[in-house]
Write a protein that binds this DNA or RNA. Structure first.
Length: 214
DNA sequence: GCGACAG
DNA sequence: ATCTTGTCGC
């Protein structure tokens, strides 16, 4: 997918691709491997990192880094166009495809139900979930214990994700389906990836890796 | 029209 | 995302 020249063109691309999202098919909590994806900005450069973990042990299987130029501006709702090209390059550097993509941003929890995790899932054909640190829409507050969850809501009232508590008494993360899985599986996987910190190990390690790769 | 708005 | 110290708690 080339970088859109205008905001309107970007929206058209999302409208066209959104129908390819599959909302079931894989229990990602049974995945053997999961890849964490994140980027870091430095001036007009962008560094993307992919870290593959074995879900059962949380041990690193492989890492990959790619660098590119920041072309598309940051626009909430179109944020994926800024990061997708370099993230795909990082994924290309992996020897074998991971079982699921764990993205740092929204999946269906997006104004057009097509956030970053949907972009990456549909383009790669791999199961994908979005785990964001802040939500785009409204949400109900889950109970205070790890594992508690409450609906993340679209403006039209539909449930597009979940506010999921990954640590007792700590602000929840915002989980949504990206591609080829369901919300229950996505939340279950997120809990497997958060034994100690609020944010999934996949995302934490990818964040560390791209942050230290100038 | 205005504000809010993933990273 | 980034600008930014010390502090409280497990």
């Amino acid at each position: 997918m080339r970088t859109p020249g205008t905001e309107a063109e970007a929206v058209e691309i999302q409208q066209r691709l959104r129908h390819r999202v599959e909302l079931s098919g894989t229990d990602v909590s049974a995945a053997r491997t999961a890849v964490g994806l994140d980027v870091d900005y430095t001036g007009d450069r962008i560094v993307a990192a992919a870290v593959v973990l074995e879900v059962a042990t949380l041990e690193v299987v492989q890492t990959s880094v790619a660098e590119g130029e920041t072309i598309f501006p940051y626009i909430p709702g179109l944020f994926a166009f800024r990061e997708v090209p370099t993230l795909l390059a990082a994924l290309d550097g992996l020897d074998e495809a991971p079982d699921v993509l764990v993205c740092d941003g929204q999946g269906l929890a997006h104004p057009r139900r097509f956030g970053l995790a949907c972009h990456l899932g549909v383009i790669t054909g791999l199961p994908a979930i979005g785990v964001a640190k802040t939500p785009l829409g409204r949400y109900e507050m889950p109970g205070p214990e790890r594992g508690a969850r409450a609906p993340l809501l679209h403006d039209d009232g539909g449930e597009v994700g979940a506010a999921l508590r990954t640590r007792d008494g700590v602000k929840p993360v915002f989980v949504s389906v990206g591609h080829r899985t369901d919300l229950d599986s996505a939340c279950a996987l997120t809990l497997l990836l958060t034994p100690k910190y609020r944010v999934p190990e996949t995302t934490r390690l990818a964040d560390q890796l791209c942050r230290q790769s100038p």
